[in-house]
C-alpha cells in the first residue's frame, strides 16, 4: 500500500511539475467557461425548460473538449516510461505490475477530477455573482458531476490501456481518441438507424449521451454506474496483462 502511495504521489506530482499539466488544466478551464457562457446565451435567447447545468453539458462544444481530455492526460503514462527505458528500472524494483498500473490510473483519474473543479466553482458562484436565483437544482448538479466522474473512470482506463500498447505518446493519444470517438458514435446508433433493430437495448445501454441526458436532469440510474465501473475494471485488467505481456513477447 505504501509503495502504491509513493508511486501514486510521484505520478500525480508529475502533472503539476511540467508545463503540460498546466496547459491541460488551462485548456479545460477555458472550455468549461466557454460552455457556461454559451449556455447562458442560449438561455437568454430562447426560453427553455431545462436547467443551466443540463444546457452547459449539452452545448455543441462539450463532447469535443470532453473527449480530448483523456488522450491528453493519459498518453504519457506508460508510453513515456517505455520510450525512455525507465519501465525497466521501475519493474525491476520490488513493485508489482498491478501497483504500477493502479498508481498511474488513479493519478490520471485524480488529475481528471481536479480538472472539473473550475466547472464546479462556476455553478457554485453563479447565483452569487449574477443575483439570479440558482437556475438548477442540486439534484441535476450532483447527477451531472456524478456521470462526468463515472465516464472519467471508464475513459481514463481506456487511455491507460492505449498508453501501455505503444512507446509513442502520439500514437497512444490517437488510439485513445479513436476508441472514445467510436464509443461516442455507438451511442448515436439508435438515433441514426432508428429503434427497429434487435440490438436497440444494447445501444441504449452503452450510450454515453443518454447517460448524460438522464443524469444531468437529476435522474440517477444505477445501470450507467455499473456499466462504467465494470468497463473500467475490465480495461484495467487488460492493461495489467499487456504491461506484463510486453515483457514476455520481446
Amino acid at each position: 500500500m505504501r509503495t502504491l502511495l509513493t508511486l501514486y504521489a510521484k505520478e500525480l506530482r508529475s502533472y503539476f511539475l511540467s508545463p503540460f499539466g498546466w496547459i491541460v488544466l488551462a485548456f479545460t478551464a477555458i472550455m468549461q467557461g466557454v460552455s457556461l457562457s454559451t449556455a447562458m446565451k442560449i438561455l437568454q435567447d430562447t426560453p427553455i425548460a431545462d436547467s443551466l447545468v443540463y444546457i452547459v453539458f449539452h452545448t455543441p462544444i462539450f463532447w469535443f473538449y470532453f473527449l480530448f481530455i483523456f488522450p491528453l492526460i493519459t498518453m504519457r503514462l506508460f508510453a513515456e516510461e517505455e520510450r525512455s527505458g525507465t519501465l525497466e528500472t521501475l519493474l525491476t524494483a520490488p513493485v508489482r505490475t498491478s501497483q504500477v498500473v493502479f498508481s498511474k490510473y488513479f493519478a490520471a483519474l485524480s488529475f481528471y477530477v481536479i480538472l472539473w473543479i473550475p466547472a464546479f466553482v462556476h455553478f457554485q458562484l453563479f447565483s452569487t455573482l449574477t443575483n439570479i436565483p440558482t437556475p438548477f437544482t442540486n439534484g441535476s448538479l450532483l447527477g451531472a458531476f456524478l456521470i462526468i466522474f463515472l465516464m472519467g473512470v471508464f475513459y481514463t482506463a481506456v487511455g491507460v490501456l492505449a498508453s501501455s500498447l505503444t512507446s509513442s505518446q502520439i500514437i497512444a493519444g490517437i488510439i485513445t481518441i479513436c476508441m472514445l470517438v467510436i464509443h461516442y458514435f455507438l451511442g448515436f446508433v439508435t438515433v441514426i438507424w432508428g429503434e427497429t433493430s434487435e440490438a436497440v437495448g444494447f445501444f441504449h445501454y452503452i450510450s454515453c449521451q443518454e447517460h448524460l441526458h438522464f443524469f444531468a436532469k437529476g435522474l440517477i440510474d444505477s445501470r450507467p454506474i455499473v456499466y462504467n465501473l465494470s468497463m473500467a475494471a475490465i480495461v484495467l485488467f487488460l492493461t495489467h496483462h499487456i504491461v506484463d505481456y510486453r515483457r514476455w513477447k520481446r
Partner: peptide, 10 residues
C-alpha cells in the same frame, strides 16, 4: 543498473 541508465530526467 541497466545498460542505458534510464532515469527520470525531470
Amino acid at each position: 543498473l541497466p545498460e542505458s541508465v534510464p532515469l527520470y530526467l525531470d
